[in-house]
Write a protein that binds this DNA or RNA. Structure first.
Lengths: 321, 321
DNA sequence: ATGAAAGCGCTAACAT
DNA sequence: ATGTTAGCGCTTTCAT
């Protein structure tokens, strides 16, 4: 029996008689044969991999996105391969270079801001490229995400409508976290339109944790004790802030309101539910994967805009009707 | 100039004059050339990938392990490729099959319990295989981890020494979470040796969250109101239990003690610090990566046993001297 | 339904 | 320091 027949059986391609098929399968099993995809990929010029490039795994956001991607790729024969950039454009460039050298069937990558070389590589790759999370800017091929500017604006509008006026911000100071930056831009724009401005800011570097949220909140409230609202750049920091305020006996939502961002349900059991915005993480992963897999057609404008949705929680006053 | 010279430049191999080297590099850059690793791998019979197979990304444990692996592989030219099994041996088998078909340089995978076919594949692969997290059992090649039986025993011993006697357990009921199972085995063994036994158990399925921890704690304390200690199978569930007990006004550590497992620092800012065991996640990742990369020699017994370390926290009584 | 031949894009090994 | 040749293990294509 030729190797050709074996190849046909193992890929369920072409006509093979049930008898030989059976023989090949059992032989492969007993020999513990694992086909060599390197040779296969070289011969067929196709590889069932999708490169997924994200900034971090410890940020609770990305496991959710990956979950959406996996779920949607599961029945397509495509496999995600994850690369992590640590929010460094230089590292992103290296990761992309490495991944593209494997000639994947598509690329999903977080964010719109990439080095010139990265953009060139992606443009020349001749494969679907889906940039996710953010839609405020120019894309290379297709975008799937939410407008963080809008998310920031909407939260500001809710806060103002609820009557808060002395507002502070606590967030990351990573120049490379463009989405956090855009949320703040939208937030401040909306404040400005209402004749308001941020009364205080507190920035931090590195990962987010409850403890950091506590410390920063303590610090900003020491510096600016008369704040009546704090907008945090994510839920983990926000939850830390919430715990601090509970500790200190603040009247949450009355004396001081709080809001985070993301809508991570890991934190649902806190003593008070944090007001936040659902960033539609799983859905973003799903839609991106569907496009790469060719399950969805790309919209004409090449943008899939999902809507960030407000989660009221209990740390903001209700708006009187 | 032959393609061979180009190949040499791009891999920094063999002697190439500085002049031609320069020429090749600029040409590659302007053309946006990305070498084809599929062809390269086939020709050289070597591929700079390390397969990393883990059960889940949403479990806070694994991003930490991956962090350790990445950090240690960073300067080796090796690249981790992550596969997720969702705690399913069948899925693990598929993931392994897929990954091995790319002929990686090594495999790091969580746990010691694998399907027969998985073991056969790994045994035949002819590459370093490091099983991580757990050392209670037989390995295929090399093990790096902690003894969960011992971790369970040690926590039980501390709890008993602190004077608690009516002890309950809250944990996952996933038959495939062998490490949680082994901790419980060790825990109960130690109780039995002291003439004690678990007074109540509460199991759950699916992922862990603060909310689930609250609900389960409420339930177990309703059924068995006179418990004086709760051992949780992880910190997230334990933190939920802690929040519930705080809510209900329990005297934490006095009236009821609590302990989790893992030592995740994300939760450090809780109102009361949870007693737990540090599972040495980052170190496990590092050591496994060092072995796969050939930085460390494998110990003669093929086991790298790390010590789970007790973190006292504030939810257990201090032992009187 | 099965087989034979060519070749995918590189690199190892051996010239020069 | 640079070039030549063969071949990695498959799949594509074309025969039979």
């Amino acid at each position: 029996m030729s190797e050709m027949t074996v190849s046909r059986v193992l890929r369920n391609r072409g006509d093979v008689s049930a008898a030989t098929r059976e023989k090949v399968l059992t032989a492969a099993k007993t020999l513990g044969y694992v086909p060599n995809k390197i040779a296969g990929g070289l011969a067929s010029q196709r590889v069932n991999l999708v490169a997924v490039v994200i900034p971090s795994l410890s940020n609770l956001v990305f496991p959710d996105v990956l979950g959406g991607i996996s779920a949607e790729l599961d029945d397509t024969g495509l496999q995600p391969v994850i690369g992590v950039t640590n929010y460094s454009p230089a590292r992103e460039e290296m990761v992309l270079y490495d991944m593209l050298s494997w000639r994947p069937s598509g690329v999903i990558l977080a964010g719109l801001e990439h080095s010139k070389a990265s953009c060139a590589m992606l443009g020349n790759a001749g494969i679907p490229v889906v940039e996710i999370m953010d839609i405020d800017g120019e894309g290379i091929d297709t975008l799937v995400g939410i407008s963080h500017i809008r998310a920031g604006r909407e939260m500001a509008a809710r806060i103002i409508a609820a009557g808060y006026r002395r507002i502070g911000f606590v967030g990351t100071h990573m120049p490379e976290d463009h989405r956090a930056r855009k949320r703040l831009v939208g937030f401040e724009e909306c404040l400005a339109e209402a004749g308001l401005h941020l009364e205080a800011r507190e920035y931090y570097q590195g990962g987010s944790s409850l403890l950091k949220g506590r410390e920063l909140t303590q610090r900003i409230l020491t510096r600016a004790p008369d704040l009546d609202f704090l907008y945090f750049s994510n839920d983990m920091i926000g939850a830390g802030g919430l715990l601090h305020c509970l500790d200190k006996g603040y009247d949450i939502s009355g004396q001081i309101g709080l809001a985070g961002f993301n809508g991570v349900d890991l934190l649902d059991g806190l003593p008070v539910r944090l007001t936040t915005t659902d960033a539609r993480r799983v859905e973003i992963g799903r839609r991106a994967a569907r496009i790469v897999a060719g399950k969805d057609i790309t919209p004409p404008d090449r943008i899939v805009a999902l809507q960030p949705t407000f989660i009221a929680g209990e740390t903001i006053r209700e708006i009187k009707p």
